[in-house]
Write a protein that binds this DNA or RNA. Structure first.
Lengths: 240, 240
DNA sequence: CGCACGGTTGACCTGTATCAAGCCGGGTGG
DNA sequence: CCACCCGGCTTGATACAGGTCAACCGTGCG
């Protein structure tokens, strides 16, 4: 059976509570199923969409791991986020009908393609869906506030600690360990996200390991002292 | 006549093209008018909403100038944006039904209060409004991408140059000069927004003035060479 | 097996923070 | 109307976090 033609159903998707509203009637769920037009596979290193491409759809990540990045004319780029299963990407495209960032798969990925005009159409009729779309967009705004806070006011150790706590918390919500994780991205990508150079990221990992806060072996990280990480983020030393 | 009881009408508001969708029928415009429940005045230094307060409404700025800021438990705070007439604030509150940042007036302000449940209700019926709400939220996401890029990858001069160009461009869209502006915020607030200390902001202003790129006299700024500012943002020197 | 990419570590440099002193200008009270 | 005061701004001297450059290592893929 061709995977492109599989009828996808949100109603029996195990990620439903992550990307769809809860507490809907069967009839409403049925209609939500119709939003997902197709699925799309993206290989590691491939892009789901490029900056400048016309915007048509939002994407719900079923499996895999993405980074989104914005670029300037002069060739700089900046990772704006890492996205995992159950998260929605593509919201940046709505305002001008084209995407303003790239979404690149950091591991083989599978996404649900949800044409945005269908979403708008259906959310006029299903209040829960309408509100859900608003919440997803608002959540993204609040997430970015957090990134801005991190980039604007935290030091290297605080940034990396906050990043790791956030990652592990999101992984935990998906049934993974609270203390162990495998990074899907390079030191350079972490650095870009955190506004640091890769050497600084590497040194900071080493420092955390030296202090016994975590074990680090390339991309395998085991957090030994979550409390300590929390204290680092909360910047215990006097900051007037 | 009590200003609280003035019937506000978007349909004859001179900011309409900034905050409301264009190309609507008279009947639709009429209904949009009903969204604006009341107006609210906020004195300089006063807050429109606080972090933690229940979310009920979005606010369209009629006059005045705001900053929004997020704070951490440990007392740090970070300005996440400056908002002027025609812009919408409060979107952060949708996701968890309470606000996650403070909105503080930097000058006496007047805002339209738009209860969000009314917005949702009406945007189920008026497609143009529905799409407009989506665009406003998407625009905010894209704006924040820009801030993240700035904070993550630019140096002090580039940040300040980008900030000034952005401000002057938004003011120009509102009929003000392309080259002259009066800053509504302190050096410290600019610094917080740009992830810099106030001394660095001040020094960078002085440097721009020395180089003849602009005249700076306290909060009065006259841009003499927009091209030069653009070049600074575009980071002309080799960056590998 | 070997190459190439990602990661680590060291030495040194620089941009921005920090600390400190003084200035400017607008608002208030005598 | 002037003097004073205070918040905001500027400027200088110095400190330091993180960037830069460079060498080397490790490991996983072809």
């Amino acid at each position: 059976m061709n995977p492109q033609t599989i009828k996808v159903a949100c109603s029996n998707c195990n990620l439903r509570e992550l990307c769809m509203p809860v507490g809907m009637s069967d009839e409403q769920l049925q209609r939500i199923d119709d939003i997902v037009a197709t699925r799309r596979k993206v290989k590691r290193g491939g892009t789901l969409f490029h900056s400048g491409e016309p915007f048509t759809s939002l994407y719900a990540i079923r499996t895999g791991f993405f980074k989104t990045l914005v670029a300037t004319e002069d060739g700089r780029d900046q990772v704006t986020g890492f996205q995992m299963a159950g998260e929605i990407i593509g919201l940046d495209g709505i305002v001008n009908d084209h995407h303003t960032c790239d979404a690149v798969a950091l591991e083989d990925a599978d996404v649900c393609v949800m044409p945005f005009d269908r979403i708008e159409e259906l959310s006029r009729e299903v209040n829960a869906l309408q509100h859900h779309v608003h919440k997803i967009m608002s959540r993204e705004i609040v997430r970015e506030h957090g990134v801005i806070l991190l980039l604007g006011s935290m030091r290297a150790e605080e940034r990396l600690a906050a990043f790791l706590l956030n990652l592990v918390q999101r992984l935990h919500a998906r049934g993974f360990s609270q203390s162990e994780l495998v990074l899907r991205m390079t030191r350079e990508e972490i650095g870009s996200y955190l506004g640091l150079k890769l050497e600084t990221v590497s040194r900071t990992f080493s420092k955390f390991a030296e202090e016994g806060v975590m074990e680090v072996k390339q991309r395998h990280v085991r957090i030994l002292d979550t409390q300590a990480l929390q204290r680092i983020v909360n910047h215990q030393q006097a900051c007037q």
